[in-house]
Design a protein around this nucleic acid. Structure first.
Lengths: 282, 282
DNA sequence: CTCAATAGATAAGTTTTTCTCACCTATCGA
DNA sequence: TCGATAGGTGAGAAAAACTTATCTATTGAG
């Protein structure tokens, strides 16, 4: 490119406004400077871009042609710059409903206290397709996830509310809520393993399924049954005594939370957030 | 716009090539300068555009977003500049088939001798919609055409070849070719007026119509009849004795050749051409 | 392991571009 | 006729863009 982009910028304004004086005002430069730039550009191209009339200027055919391209081209660049700038303070996080509701959102309050200039927006959905400028946190198969993108391996246990657990008797089998993932490529939750580890000393269960752990957790808190879910999701409720494990024999799983995008694609604020999140959920 | 377009240009190359060093090479600057520009841009935006890895750089999410916009935007501008530059030596003239074939093209040889650096391209068509970067010469209604855009008022007469005119006898009415314009908003050729001016001393005619004067002229030259057409179109043939008027009583018409675009839209080469053409056709 | 080579970062100084100032020309309108 | 407006020009000042030299960190060859 031989033509100075500065001159293009000046030309664009002059063409759009139809006046060197107005262009000068818009760009906060003198009209002499506009004049210089335009005639410079005209000399380089060997073409008149404006016809000078009595008092003012009018685009020639070539000027008009160039004007359309510069307006569109510069607009495109400017819009991208504006978007990036406005995104600079915003961080979009996309994750599962369960992780969002039970882990992320309760933690956000603390994050905002530390990083006041970053505004985190949470969206949920089961789609893996990563959106632009969005940090994605997904539930995945620990055997298929690279160490560097792994966030936390999930251990499972059975939880219930104090009153519900106390009310369990041998003759009345309690309901336990398990999760059957909508995404059938995901490993199942380790219910069989948990039974093997804990089964001998336990009552029979009436098993019901939800497609998200979240719903089971809510049922458990409401005292309507037990939930078999990951430690990560209920740790806050356990701390608050809203739930307790019915056994301390939690079991390992093939499930983990991970970040599907490569870390070098992350902007600084994304990386800050990931580091902080890792520290919070240990 | 706050960001320097120079920095955008450098960023675009670096993003496209995935390397500061290669960008520096492409732009014929030092890699230190590339580094300066990029970090400057990053500071202004408050966003990392590249992740610095061991040896090299990789676009971040934001960098990728900006890269797409800058590549498209700058490309658009560059293409327009290239087009204008290549157009600088080319002049497109659009006019009627008759004017092109009978006036313009015969004259072009002389024009090229004087203005060797301008390459005139002629296209024809009855559409009035003016194309970009094209000088249009149209047949119009002299009462609707502004003085400044008028090229030449048309006077009409009846022409034939020497042998044909000599062969005309009172008992055998000669064919005369008139023109009925496809565009019915155009005034008719002044046949009635011509008859009034010349009629008394003339034989009866067998009248046939074409939609372009050109065809009638060719028939007349071929000795198949007479043509009623404008002086402008046949002046070369009259000079060359291929045609002669059957009467010296040419008549005025409401028709004229004119240039529908405003003269201030014309580039320098267009204006040069128009001035030259006016001088040639008087 | 060592050492040359590579990619980029940084600081200071130089060059080029951009921009302003002062002054001009031409036109418009009161 | 004169003041106001729009733009053009040339010289010098200000601000970029750019280079050189030096530095860090990593890679790859011997």
């Amino acid at each position: 490119m031989n033509a100075s982009l500065q001159a293009i910028k000046v030309f664009e304004a002059a063409a759009r406004l139809g006046s060197f004086k107005d262009a000068a005002e818009e760009l906060s430069i003198t009209s002499a400077n506009v004049s210089h730039h335009i005639s410079n550009l005209e000399n380089r191209l060997g073409v008149r871009l404006f016809t000078r009339i009595n008092r003012g200027v009018i685009l020639t055919s070539e000027g008009h042609q160039l004007s359309e391209a510069t307006t569109v081209g510069l607009q495109k660049i400017q819009t991208a710059l504006d978007n990036i700038k406005s995104d600079a303070s915003k961080l979009n996080v996309d994750t599962t409903s369960s992780f969002a509701a039970l882990v992320l959102i309760p933690l956000l309050h603390d994050f905002n206290k530390i990083y006041q200039n970053v505004d985190v927006e949470v969206s949920t959905g089961e789609v893996v397709a990563s959106k632009v400028n969005t940090l994605s946190i997904r539930l995945g198969d620990v055997t298929r996830v690279d160490e560097s993108s792994l966030l936390k391996k999930e251990r499972f246990n059975v939880y219930g509310s104090f009153p519900f657990i106390r009310s369990i008797t041998v003759d009345k089998p309690p309901t336990v809520y398990l999760t059957k993932w909508k995404n059938n490529k995901l490993p199942d939750s380790p219910w069989e393993n948990w039974l093997i580890e804990n089964g001998e000393s336990l009552p029979e269960f009436e098993i019901k399924y939800f497609d998200q752990e979240l719903y089971g957790v809510y049922e458990a808190i409401a005292g309507k049954g037990l939930v078999f879910c990951s430690e990560t999701l209920v740790s806050d409720f356990v701390k608050a005594n809203a739930l307790q494990p019915i056994s301390y024999q939690s079991v390992d799983s093939l499930l983990c939370y991970y970040i599907p995008t490569e870390s070098w694609q992350h902007s600084a604020k994304m990386q800050t957030f990931v580091d902080w999140l890792k520290s919070q959920i240990k």
